[in-house]
């Protein structure tokens, strides 16, 4: 396979920011997945650190706590030779009352090349991107989008199944509060998968069928014949009223156990974006089962983030040429 060059990134991924999966073309997604595929192989073969981002500065700006996504971006940046700075929001002036835009303007004045942002409010990353000169990557904004998660999920599926198109993917759990679900619905639909969502009605957004998915409130039916079962975390911290009566009841009707998994295809894969609530949305034995690709998802996370950083870096001033 030809190694994509900076020049090809300029034409194949003509974007300065990665803010949402909505509107990404199949060609753009596949370009990123190809690039990530190579990165993953490169790492697996014990390949050395590369220098695509040498001399570039990457800021991880996380307004919401995160372990795996932040570490994954840091690892990806460093593997590409960037200088990575993690902004600890808990001790920054954000907690002293500074507005998001002031923070953006301040950071911009330091002239970073890339900023990775996670924020608890939907649309916050987009707002910030309008105020800075560098590239911005959305690492999760409220219940809106988490593009690199959907890309790493697509890559995991593609590597395990050889394709995404034509597969039936059942996304199950707290759809209402999930940016992972929204991003995945966009990417999977664009790549030609058949997407189902499964949740109690209280955890579905209004007019869910308008998102281009099949909607199920009965998990036993929704999981029937699925190629991929993608579980979501029950986001209790985002619930401001009684959406689900108890973890026990949720697990009984919407948790993934072997009995429900048996309704999916025999070779169905089990996925979870993490962090998992074992015994709430997924049984421990299912999470650790051979059909579970949850660990591969984490591995592909670094590769996908390398691909995204590399693709965006092609547009930075002084790049390529």
């Amino acid at each position: 396979m030809n190694k994509p060059t900076t020049a090809s990134a300029l034409t194949s991924f003509p974007r300065r920011h990665l803010l949402t999966c909505e509107g990404l073309s199949a060609a753009e997604i596949n370009f990123l997945l190809d690039l990530a595929d190579q990165a993953a192989d490169h790492i697996r073969q014990g390949g050395h650190k590369r220098d695509v981002l040498a001399g570039r500065t990457l800021i991880n700006l996380f307004f919401e706590s995160s372990t795996r996504t932040q570490a994954s971006f840091e690892m990806a940046g460093k593997r590409l030779g960037a200088d990575v700075m993690n902004m600890n929001v808990a001790t920054s002036s954000v907690t002293k009352g500074e507005t998001l835009i002031d923070t953006a303007v301040t950071l911009n004045a330091m002239r970073p090349d890339l900023i990775v942002v996670r924020h608890h409010a939907a649309g916050a990353v987009e707002l910030l991107s309008q105020k800075v000169d560098c590239s911005v990557i959305n690492a999760g904004d409220g219940a809106h989008q988490h593009p690199t998660q959907a890309l790493l999920d697509a890559l995991t599926i593609r590597r395990a199944k050889g394709r995404v198109s034509g597969l039936t993917v059942a996304i199950c759990g707290d759809i209402l509060h999930s940016r992972v679900a929204r991003s995945n619905i966009n990417v999977l639909n664009t790549l030609g998968a058949r997407v189902r969502i499964i949740a109690p009605s209280t955890l579905l957004p209004s007019a869910p069928e308008r998102l281009g998915v099949e909607v199920f409130t009965d998990m036993w039916k929704g999981i029937e014949g699925a190629d991929i079962v993608m579980m979501l975390r029950l986001q209790r911290e985002r619930m401001d009223a009684s959406y689900v009566p108890s973890s026990r009841e949720f697990f009984h009707f919407f948790g993934l156990d072997h009995e429900k998994l048996a309704r999916a295809k025999p070779d169905a894969l089990v996925m979870h974006p993490g962090p998992m609530n074992r015994g709430v949305e997924i049984a421990s034995t299912v999470a650790d089962h051979t059909r579970s690709v949850i660990r591969e998802q984490v591995e592909m996370g670094v590769a996908v983030r390398m691909a995204v950083l590399e693709a965006l870096a092609a547009h930075l001033s002084g790049a390529g040429a």
Binding site: A241, S242, Y243, P245, S246, R248, E249, H252, F253
Partner: peptide
């Protein structure tokens, strides 16, 4: 305020669900 385990209660034989003598003031609930 908090919903009961309607699914499991129904399975256990509850025939319907009510807030008894009191009315639910919270529209969201």
């Amino acid at each position: 305020e908090e919903m009961t385990e309607i699914g499991l209660l129904k399975r256990a034989g509850a025939i319907a669900f009510s807030n008894g003598r009191s009315s639910l003031a919270n529209t969201r609930v």
